[in-house]
């Protein structure tokens, strides 16, 4: 266990009775966790609900917390379990944050490369949501959020080898589905740099 993890320090302070430490942890992790859960669930409101639920569980664990892993690994594990449970339920109507999407869509005037990049980003986002759950989680946590394979393995409660395979399969599938879009962007970039 890495004792220098500042989040673990904060959690230990919270366990010792420092309520402000819990607020700090929330401010640090609510955003990334919200984006992660939104990506997993495709539903902003539900993601917000689960972020609160995850932190409620963190709060409730103050008496029995033991720093066995990084705080983020533990938190993401809680959130991932919540998300997987939610995904097992009968499909709820997923409401995407249209306003946020529109912000992503809004291109800067006259900047073709940026437009192409944004379109590509949208495509990636869409195709990512079509991947199998565990591939999607593994790929997102590893490639997008920068968790190590060991951390992802702890979050998904599996082995590193399995995570490596999940990430590879997810990435390959995504590239295959992107197909022409990647190619066009690549050629666009080549032209732009020539």
């Amino acid at each position: 266990m890495e004792q220098k993890d500042p989040d673990v320090e904060l959690m230990l302070a919270f366990c010792a009775g420092e309520e402000a430490a819990f607020d700090q942890l929330f401010r640090r992790w609510a955003g990334p966790l919200l984006r992660y859960l939104e990506r997993m669930l495709g539903d902003g409101a539900l993601a917000e609900e689960l972020v609160q639920e995850a932190f409620l569980r963190v709060h409730g664990a103050r008496d029995r917390y033991e720093p066995r892993a990084r705080f983020s690994t533990w938190l993401y594990r809680i959130a991932t379990n919540l998300a997987l449970n939610e995904l097992k339920r009968p499909r709820r109507k997923h409401v995407h944050q249209e306003e946020e999407k529109s912000l992503l869509r809004a291109p800067g005037p006259g900047i073709d490369e940026e437009v192409a990049s944004k379109r590509m980003g949208e495509k990636v986002e869409r195709e990512l949501n079509n991947l199998p759950e565990r591939q999607r989680i593994a790929l997102w946590l590893s490639a997008a959020e920068g968790h190590s394979y060991a951390e992802v393995a702890a979050i998904l409660e599996t082995t590193e080898t399995s995570v490596k395979a999940l990430v590879h399969r997810g990435r390959s599938a995504l590239v295959a589905r992107m197909g022409d879009c990647v190619e066009s962007l690549t050629s666009f970039s080549r032209q732009g740099t020539a």
Partner: peptide, 25 residues
């Protein structure tokens, strides 16, 4: 190809790549 994809994924995840409005939201 794989690198391009990772770049897009990171852009989706990182607020630093988003607009100010998205960050504010």
């Amino acid at each position: 190809e794989l690198g391009e994809l990772s770049g897009h994924l990171q852009n989706l995840a990182s607020p630093s790549e988003r607009s100010e409005a998205a960050i504010q939201l």
